[in-house]
Every structure is written in C-alpha cells, then in structure tokens.
C-alpha cells in the first residue's frame, strides 16, 4: 500500500477550506497549519496565468525528516505515511530544517507537528478531512498500488508534476497541471 494525493490545480480556487477543515479535524492551534495554499502568478497583463495549489506534507518515500530525527519520533507507518510521535519528539527542529517543503511546524506544546493524511480517519474507512471538504473536489486520495483508487485514476489520464523533484525525496503529492 502506498498512500498518495493528487491535487488538480485546474480546479483549485484557493479558498483555504482544506486548511480550516484540517484545523478543526486535527485540533491544530490557531496560528498554525498542516496544509496551506500557494498561488503562483506568471506572465504579464493580460497574458497572465495563475496556478493554485493546496499543499501539505509530501509523505516522501525517501524522507529526510525521518532520517535526521535523533529520537525516532519521526517515523513511517503503513501506507508510507510520515508521522511524528509527539511524546518522543524533543522539539529539536532538525526535521523542520531538513524538509524541502516546509511541511512541519513547532507546536506550542513543544513538539513538531505535521499532516498525518488523517490516518485516524483512514482507519475508520473515511478519507482525509481536506479531501472530504474540498468544494471543488480537486483533491484525490488513495492507494497508488490500487489502480481503481481515486488518486490512481486521477494520475492516469492527466499530466502531473511533483514539487522540488531535485531534492530526491520522492514526494507523494502529485499536482495535476
């Protein structure tokens, strides 16, 4: 099993619903977030394009955050989900430094926190909070090894890219372009 997410940049309107839904689902304190929106503008008026992306942890196959963690708090669970065990984390921030996607933050309680792909929901057969709330339905989630999963189907017929491929982390967020 290999969980992954595809984000359709052609449909995302950058509303930030994924951010709020994640905050309320996962008790993310005000002022912090596990997912966020990036808007890129290219060109000059009136030949302008924008790309909107809902971003979060890439749950990399080759994750520098897990490799650099001195206590083993950062680890990988079934399906390739990168997680942090809060009570094993000493808050040193090495993982924050190592992440090319800036996906981690220091929780005010002293540990590092990040997207979990809502594994507590996956256990119950639900999808992630951000996927389930998205009004434009631009997020596709599932098992890459299952050809019938939403994410596999989304990737099959569309062009996509990953962010910072040069970092060699084998990221698992795919942006449909």
């Amino acid at each position: 099993m290999r969980y992954a997410m595809a984000i359709d940049t052609k449909k995302c309107v950058g509303c930030g619903d994924c951010v709020v839904a994640c905050q309320t689902e996962n008790n993310v304190p005000h002022g912090y977030c596990r997912d966020w929106i990036v808007e890129n503008v290219n060109g000059s008026y009136p030949n302008v394009e924008i790309e909107l992306r809902s971003e979060r942890c890439n749950h990399c196959d080759n994750s520098p955050c897990v490799r650099c963690c001195p206590t083993g708090a950062s680890h990988i669970i079934e399906g390739g989900i990168v997680k942090v065990t809060h009570n094993e984390c000493i808050g040193c921030g090495a993982c924050i430094q190592s992440c090319p996607y800036d996906a981690r933050y220091s929780h005010p309680d002293g540990y590092v926190d990040k997207c979990t792909f809502c594994d507590h929901r996956l256990e119950k057969g639900q999808s992630t909070a951000c996927v389930e709330v998205c009004p434009t339905n631009c997020l596709y989630f599932g098992d890459l090894e299952d050809p019938n999963s939403d994410v596999s189907k989304a990737l099959k017929n569309r062009k996509w890219k990953v962010l910072a491929p040069e970092a060699g982390t084998k990221p698992q967020l795919y942006f449909l372009t």
Binding site: G14, G16, V19, G31, Y32, C33, D35, W36, I37, V38, E39, N40, V41, N42, G43, D102, R104, Y105, S106
Partner: peptide, 11 residues
C-alpha cells in the same frame, strides 16, 4: 515568475 503569494498559514 514574479508575484507569488501564499494564502493560508506560514508555520
């Protein structure tokens, strides 16, 4: 290009 902006939160 120029002009990127992030909505949402910057941890």
């Amino acid at each position: 290009g120029a002009g990127a902006a992030a909505l949402g939160l910057s941890p």
